[in-house]
Design a protein around this nucleic acid. Sequence first.
DNA 1: AAGTGGTCTAGACCACCGC
DNA 2: CGGTGGTCTAGACCACTTG
Lengths: 229, 229
Amino acid sequence: MHSYEIIRAAMLGKIADQIWTPADTLPHELDLAREFDVSRGTIRRAMADLVQMGLIERRRKSGTRVVARKQHSSTLIIPVVRKEIIAKGGQYGYKLLKCETGPEIVDMTGYFADAPLMRIGCLHLSDGRPYQLEDRLINLDAVPAALQTDFAAISPNEWLVERVPYSSVRTVLRAQPADREHADILKIAENAPLFIIERQTRLDSTPVTFVKMSHPAAGFAIVTDTGDG
Amino acid sequence: MHSYEIIRAAMLGKIADQIWTPADTLPHELDLAREFDVSRGTIRRAMADLVQMGLIERRRKSGTRVVARKQHSSTLIIPVVRKEIIAKGGQYGYKLLKCETGPEIVDMTGYFADAPLMRIGCLHLSDGRPYQLEDRLINLDAVPAALQTDFAAISPNEWLVERVPYSSVRTVLRAQPADREHADILKIAENAPLFIIERQTRLDSTPVTFVKMSHPAAGFAIVTDTGDG
DNA sequence: AAGTGGTCTAGACCACCGC
DNA sequence: CGGTGGTCTAGACCACTTG
């Protein structure tokens, strides 16, 4: 057990027991260093973890405080579609619908500024039945290798996740009735509910890809487990 | 711009340009310190950020590598309904529909074993229009104070989140067509899509509460973000 | 203006783990 | 065993933010 872990645990205890509350200001780094008989750096190491857990907030001059919680948080994990289907016991199938590149591609999101784009539409199948429709834009400046890739052989979902690094993700989850086109492709009734996952991926402020996954809602759910909120 | 940020950006560039790939081992800390003419601590500071972003993995003896990913992950944050509505610029309204306790309450989830339960149904409104239907079970063993609380005055959602500690959360997200009852209460068409959020909360293995939030899908979305996905 | 957290250094020593 | 990343120190200086 390292000292920063011992100190972090001690601080966690004080927060859990409400000895330190959002109303208080915590002792300064140097006071804590004296109290625990370690250097200031070790105190900072322990506090950095608490900041990352979202338990405390620190500001110059005004000091360190416990954060008042006011929401639930948990970790959403979205696997590669192929693995999701296999994990459910299905036989995975894949079909490329279209793959275009050039200036005529419309960036309906405004997310990519004027970067050159590739647009790919494809369908993931489980046991031969349509499972999920993927509609994707790729920034060719960020991922030029996409031009040399045969997306009839591998889905852009899988290719990108495993190959292209990213540092931040924004996911939007919503539901809407299927329009005629989606209903036809997914072989469901018009106006049947679709579960939609949109995801924007960046690598340090450069947009990499935007994808809209459309999923028949029947029998589909996303499960997330405990974060630290 | 601090030096660790400059170094982090330089490393990010090498990862983005695939100069460093999952196949390679990165240079050692001391080599990088010489290369960038900083101390080893500063190199470590920059790399710590990349580790936290999930871009690199480090191991003693074997060194540092770029991560090959297998899934997307992000943090799902679900705020208190009242604050969510206010944040969207709506006027919050609340109506208690029913609040029952006693042995006749059915635990349709099997989640609570034989604990004494309270069941609460209530409606959250935005600008006077139904926004979200809440159907909740509370474990009275875990939260006896619920019996002394007037849920006509405060929603169980808000009361619980701010007052009752919890250690783990499981959330299920799905969509389904509205049945007659939901359609009536939420004033939408039958079979219109509903976005449903179910959440189970535990405190150290004791189930605390189960809630099912039903939401008209039109105009509703959940957004999640991450810096570590 | 002053007090707080933030960055950076130079170096010592530790401990995991692959060869 | 030896090489790598991990911890810790003591101190200097920086820079944000609030009273």
